[in-house]
Design a protein around this nucleic acid. Structure first.
Length: 524
RNA sequence: GGUCUCGUAGCUCAGCUGGAUAGAGCAGCAGCCUUCUAAGCUGCGGGUCGCGCGUUCGAAUCGCGCCGAGAUCACCA
């Protein structure tokens, strides 16, 4: 400690510069700074994405995917053994709607014949179904039905239900069609996943898991945790916990969403023995996950405590919520393309086109455009409803991904310049205390915080902490850069320290952004 | 109606495990490129932290009540 004082009941202590310099010289050239050196035994399963296969991904899915991937990377950085899984909802009435519409009005159209991405093609038929379904309803109402009856008895809907029955009976034709159309969707999704830079260790399909959980229900009946009503349906009474009764088996003995989630949770636990199971799912399912955890606990599964619902808020647009019916959804692929296009325009506008060519340029636009999108979404606290303002998202100044990327590229440029002049980052540094100015000190303090920030972000499942930290760091560095010469500094020991400091900052920016799934360019 | 979440500058967000004068970015205004990348930097204006009560030496932060916004409470997933 260097000094201390007391002001208004606060004891302020000043830590000696030597302590900071000693920390700095020990850590500044570690490439993995901020990441846990070793992996612990604890496994965490993170489920995210989990799309339906009847329409393409939209902005809401983008938030889900980016969050899931980033949280996984953060948990890995804190030394956890992370398994990323995706549970694809590939069966059910909604898929049958697309299938039926395609049979009726598709004329054999395929992604190849239409040039459409597979998931978009399927989405087109889902929309088409809805259109004709509405016409059916209108006709029935005109013929004297009530709205409710019409919705139930529309011929199209009855046909769809018939199709689902055939699927469940394993009708070869229906299954073949289902496989073919799902295959198209997967190709489309894979492309979107690649663009988003997300990946999975394991993919589950609901068509293979939807029957799970029935044995758990039987166990619950045997132990008296669950009860059967007169019509044969099975329920869990949660009124004692301030919730309602929850259906677990229909009166015809078939399972519901909750039933399969009970089953998949147990299967997953048995497969990985994880300390925690994270579900990245929107906050409209808060109730569902409370019930899931509660029922499993009642059944005596202690590991249910480890279930964590990473509940994130909706993404809204300036004119309100996204509504597929009103055509106000933001399609994920359109969004991605738009961001990359904007990156290209910005680069041109700033007169930097001649610095890049061909593939290098394309890669740069991708890095910047995706960096902007990812950062824009991840900087907001996951649990909050966020507003997606298209105009603001393509602004690359201020608290944005490109701002941070730019800072990184600047540092790289300095390191290149230094290298040209034969100045290298220290290999065995000894710094004198006089080199330690105010700006340098604030930077070192921030750099020192990074591992703790990662730890905190892991505990809170919040990439936003990492994002906001990185912005602070980049801002601090830009001030330092503006106020001080680095390569041009004449005093050799000061120059060396500032160079090392720049190098360290670059490492931390790169490592932090990697946790968000954001790449950093060496030139931009 | 019950339960849950949210409400901070014109806008988008930090801060919330109680502490010093509530911070950024955008937008607005005024400046800084013959010198390491101006996607940068500096300055100015902008707030009854939804409202009220309480706990405390101290509340944006904790508790209660109200107001406002949203979600959810399906033999859908």
């Amino acid at each position: 400690m260097e000094s201390f004082n007391v002001i208004q009941g606060f004891l302020n202590m000043v830590i000696r510069s030597n302590e900071w310099l000693s920390f700095f010289s020990q850590e500044f050239n570690k490439q993995g700074y901020g990441y846990a050196g070793s992996t612990s035994d604890e496994t965490i399963v993170v489920e995210y994405s989990s799309p339906n296969t009847n329409k393409p991904l939209h902005l809401g899915h983008v938030r889900n995917n980016l969050l899931g991937y980033s949280v996984s990377q953060i948990l890995k950085a804190t030394g956890k053994n992370v398994v990323m899984v995706n549970l694809v909802n590939d069966r059910g009435i909604h898929i049958c709607k697309s299938m039926l519409a395609w049979l009726k009005w598709g004329n054999g159209e395929t992604p190849a014949s239409s040039g459409m991405k597979g998931d978009h093609l399927i989405g087109k038929y889902y929309v088409l179904f809805d259109k004709y379904y509405k016409e059916d309803i209108a006709q029935l109402i005109e013929a004297g039905s009530s709205k409710e009856e019409a919705e139930k008895n529309a011929p199209l809907l009855l046909e769809t239900q018939e199709m689902l029955r055939k699927w469940e009976q394993g009708d070869p034709e229906t299954i073949a069609l289902w496989k073919k159309m799902n295959g198209w969707v997967y190709e489309g999704f894979d492309e979107t996943y690649r663009s988003l830079g997300v990946a999975f260790d394991k993919i589950y399909h609901e068509s293979e898991t939807y029957l799970l959980g029935k044995d758990i229900v039987q166990m619950g009946l045997d132990s008296g945790v669950l009860f059967r009503k007169e019509d044969g349906s099975v329920w869990c009474d949660l009124t004692g916990d301030g919730l309602d009764e929850k259906l677990l088996l229909r009166s015809d003995g078939t399972s519901v969403y909750m039933t399969q989630d009970l089953g998949t949770a147990r299967t997953r636990y048995e497969e990985f023995k994880p300390g925690k199971m994270v579900y990245v799912v929107g906050n409209e399912q808060d109730y569902h996950f409370n019930v899931l955890r509660l029922i499993l606990k009642k059944m005596g599964y202690g590991w249910a405590e480890g279930i964590y619902h990473l509940s994130y808020g909706m993404v809204e647009l300036p004119n309100g919520k996204m509504k597929s019916r009103e055509g106000t959804v933001v399609d994920a692929d359109d969004l991605i393309e738009g961001m990359i296009q904007t990156a290209r325009e910005m680069t041109a506008q700033l007169g930097k086109l001649e610095d890049f060519e061909g593939e290098e340029a394309a890669r740069l636009y991708n890095t910047i455009g995706m960096g902007a999108l990812k950062y824009y979404i991840l900087k907001v606290d996951p649990k909050k409803t966020m507003l997606f303002n298209p105009e603001e998202s393509i602004d690359f100044n201020g608290n944005t991904g490109p701002f941070i990327q730019y800072t990184y590229a600047r540092i790289c440029s300095i390191l290149r310049k230094a290298n040209e002049r034969g100045i290298r980052v220290s290999s065995n540094p000894v710094y004198k205390e006089e080199i330690f100015g105010e700006k340098e000190k604030s930077l070192v303090l921030l750099l020192h915080d990074f591992p703790a920030i990662v730890e905190e972000a892991g505990k809170n499942f919040s990439p936003a902490l990492v994002a906001n930290y990185t912005f602070e760091l980049a801002k601090e560095y830009n001030q330092f850069y503006h106020d001080h010469n680095i390569v041009r500094e004449e005093d050799e020991s000061i120059r060396q320290f500032r160079l090392d400091l720049s190098f360290f900052t670059a490492t931390v920016i790169r490592n932090a952004m990697k946790l968000l799934g954001v790449e950093v360019p060496e030139k931009m």
